[in-house]
Design a protein around this nucleic acid. Structure first.
Lengths: 100, 100
DNA sequence: AAGATATATCGACTTTTTCCGATATTCCAA
DNA sequence: TTGGAATATCGGAAAAAGTCGATATATCTT
C-alpha cells in the first residue's frame, strides 16, 4: 500500500464522488444491461455520464484509482467495469488510526 | 470536516512524515527546553530541522495541516508549538470505512 | 529602545495536476 | 472484413502545488 499514492488519488472531488457512487451502484446508476452491477461494477460510460466530464478524463481518473488499489476492473467485451476494492478502504482506515 | 482538504493535506511526503513524527514526538525530537512536548507539541524550528526543508516551507506545511484540522497549534512566547489533533484522525478513519 | 530569535507572509519560479480534444486500440456485429 | 461503439492513450493549455529567498511581524532580552 503506497499511502501517498492513495491520498493523491483521493485529492480530487470527482474521484471522491466516483468512489461514493460505487459504494451503492444500484442507487446511483441506471439498471445495467449486460452484467450484474454487484458482481463486476459499473462501466466507464455510465460513470462518465454521471460525472459530466470528458471521456478521457474519467478513463484516466478510474485508472488512477485503480493504480492506487482503490478500484478493481474487469473487461467484458467492449466494456470495462469498475468496482470498489473494499479491502483497500479497510486497510487505509487502519493505517490512519494506527500508523500515520 | 472537509475531506477533500484533508486528503490534499495528506498528499505530500513531508507532511505525512511530520504527522508520523508528531505521533511520538519524544522519539523523533530532541528533549524540549521550555515546554512539555506532550502538552503543547513541538516547535516549528525543531520540525524544520528534522525535515530539512526551508523554514518558510515548513511553516506553510504546518499551516496546511492545521487548516485541514489535523494539527493544533499553541503560541507561547516566540515559539509556535504544533501537536496532532487525534480526534480528526479518528473521524477521518471512520469516514473512510463508512462514508466514502 | 535596539538587537536577536522564532515564525509568518510574499513573490517568483518550477513541477505537478487537471481537463480537454484528437487519435489509437479493442472488440462486436453485420 | 469493415464499420461502429467503448475505452485507452497522447499531447497540450491552464490551474494548482511545491519550494525557495527575502522580508515582515512578534516577542524576548538587555
Amino acid at each position: 500500500m503506497d499511502q501517498l499514492e492513495i491520498f493523491k488519488a483521493l485529492s480530487n472531488k470527482t474521484r471522491l464522488q466516483i468512489l461514493h457512487w460505487l459504494k451503492e451502484p444500484e442507487r446511483y446508476f441506471p439498471p445495467q444491461e449486460h452484467e450484474d452491477i454487484h458482481q463486476v461494477g459499473v462501466c466507464v460510460g455510465q460513470i462518465q455520464q454521471k460525472a459530466g466530464l470528458n471521456q478521457s478524463t474519467i478513463s484516466e481518473y478510474l485508472s488512477i484509482l485503480q493504480k492506487a488499489g482503490l478500484l478493481k476492473s474487469t473487461r467484458i467485451g467492449q466494456w470495462t467495469y469498475y468496482k470498489r476494492n473494499e479491502e483497500a478502504f479497510l486497510t487505509l482506515s487502519q493505517f490512519i488510526t494506527e500508523e500515520i
